[in-house]
Computed example of a mutant assay.
Amino acid sequence: MTYLDYSEATLRSMDAYWTAKEIEQQPATWQKTYQMLEANKGKIEAFLRPVLNTKNIRIILTGAGTSAFVGASIAPAILKSFGGRVEAIPTTDLVSNPHEFFQEDVPTLLVSFARSGNSPESVAAFECAEKLVKNCSQIAITCNAEGALYKRCQGDNKLALLMPEETNDKSFAMTSSFSCMLLTALYVFCPSDAFEQHLTAAINATSALLKTYNMMLKSVAMKKFERVVYLGSGVSKGLAQEGALKLLELTDGQALSTFDSPLGFRHGPKAVVNDKTLVIIFISNDPYTRQYDLELLAELQNDQEVGQILSITAKSDPVFKQGECVMLDNMSEVDDTYLMFPFIASAQVYALQHSLAINNTPDNPSSSGTINRVVQGVHIHAL
């Protein structure tokens, strides 16, 4: 078997097997996740309908690290679809400052995203919500049936949604776990008659991207940029945050990374740009938002200070330069929420290739061993 054009033997020798496999398996796991969700559609709707019809219901999307960025990515889409109060608040904030975030008399649906469901903050956020909110419902979207969060989220006012077993990533970095939890949140909170059609487009586009642009992303990674900036608007801003973390994790901090929106980047953060900087821009399909994305792209080109720009887009434009654009197949007419899937796959591939370019070990990237797959050493204090 080969993954991302590397043989299994080569990947194992570089300690990169699981990361590469779990990136490439995503289109298949998205299809499998969708089938599982369809099989549980009645159960999901029966739970969700009365909760979302509750007056003044508040939805909090939570998780830690990459799991938190699932909520940050999907929150704008849920806000648009639901129209009520939707907030993405990391468990790390909820647990350390519970009285600032939980409101006793406000009906709340806490949606927890977690790969293992065993991190101390995941369980503590669940318990804080139960203690501090009078009318509290909970959904756990997780990849581990043996996890503490999955086991707790059973019974009245609770719903546990389990991802396919193979998405409980064995690698250090969350890849297929992130995208499948993102897909599940999109399915649950943003229903659409065209959901399957658009998901199929995302699956096909991502499969093509992994075959067509892997070598291009590898060639960019071989330049070993010291600074990488991820930019995205709306739902893509959360993806930009996840892309920045993925690179930071897989390179063990040797490649410094940051994120912003294209419009926000102009307000000071642009100072990071120099000839050792790579800027990766997720280009929106929305005609209005796209204008800001392309204006920033043109500005960076005119400044002639950046090392390289890489645009990920589903629509062509004269501003794109040859060799600096990943063009997604047959997605020019879909909503940005479905672009999230090939967008994040491109960031994951780049992070893996950059890690290999600097001779790091993607499956176990922390050379000191002080950063772990499931966070260690956190003591949860009593309320």
Score class of each variant (00 low, 15 high):
Ser368Thr: 12
Gln241Glu: 15
Ala28Lys: 06
Leu356His: 04
His198Trp: 12
Val378Asn: 09
Tyr350Trp: 10
Lys21Met: 12
Ser73Phe: 01
Ile57Asn: 02
Pro262Tyr: 02
Gly117Trp: 04
Asp303Arg: 01
Arg49Lys: 14
Glu324Asp: 10
Thr200Phe: 05
Lys21Ile: 00
Ile74Val: 14
Thr206Ala: 11
Gln291Ser: 11
Ser236Phe: 13
Gly243Leu: 01
Arg115Ala: 04
Thr91Pro: 01
Leu37Asp: 09
Cys128Ile: 02
Ala114Lys: 03
Ala145Gln: 12
Leu247Val: 15
Leu109Glu: 04
Asp286Pro: 06
Leu183Asn: 03
Thr167Cys: 14
Ser7Asp: 03
Thr108Cys: 06
Leu4Glu: 03
Asp15Lys: 10
Pro365Ala: 15
Gly42Pro: 01
Met340Trp: 02
Cys153Arg: 01
Lys32Glu: 14
Pro90Ile: 03
Thr289Glu: 03
Val326Arg: 04
Asp293Ala: 11
Ser137Tyr: 14
Ala244Glu: 02
Phe47Lys: 08
Ser368Tyr: 12
Lys315Trp: 05
Ala345Tyr: 03
Gly117Gln: 10
Pro107Tyr: 09
Ala240Trp: 09
Met340Thr: 14
Thr206His: 06
Leu356Asn: 05
Leu79Met: 11
Lys218Ile: 11
Glu121Met: 11
Thr33Lys: 04
Met181Thr: 13
Val306Glu: 03
Val123Cys: 02
Cys190Ala: 09
Gln353Leu: 12
Gln154Thr: 15
Thr10Phe: 05
Trp18Arg: 06
Tyr3Gln: 02
Ile380Cys: 00
Glu22Asn: 08
Thr370Glu: 12
Glu196Asn: 13
Gln26Cys: 04
Gly377Gln: 13
Ala357Val: 07
Trp30Asp: 11
Pro27Trp: 04
Val228Thr: 15
Glu165Leu: 07
Ala298His: 11
Arg152Met: 08
Gln103Val: 11
Tyr230Asn: 07
Ile78Phe: 07
Gln254Asn: 11
Ile280His: 00
Trp18Lys: 09
Phe178Leu: 03
Asn53Cys: 13
Glu299His: 07
Arg152Trp: 03
Lys218Tyr: 09
Lys170Phe: 05
Met181Pro: 02
Gly307Ser: 07
Ile283Arg: 02
Met331His: 05
Met1Gly: 09
Val228Asn: 06
Ser233Phe: 05
Ala129Thr: 09
Ser112Ala: 11
Leu383Met: 03
Asp252Asn: 14
Ile203Pro: 01
Val86His: 00
Gly232Arg: 07
Ile280Pro: 00
Arg227Ser: 13
Glu242Asp: 09
Pro76Arg: 05
Val326Gln: 02
Pro269Glu: 13
Cys136Gln: 10
Thr91Arg: 06
Lys218Phe: 07
Pro50Asp: 06
Gln154Cys: 10
Cys180Met: 07
Val326Trp: 06
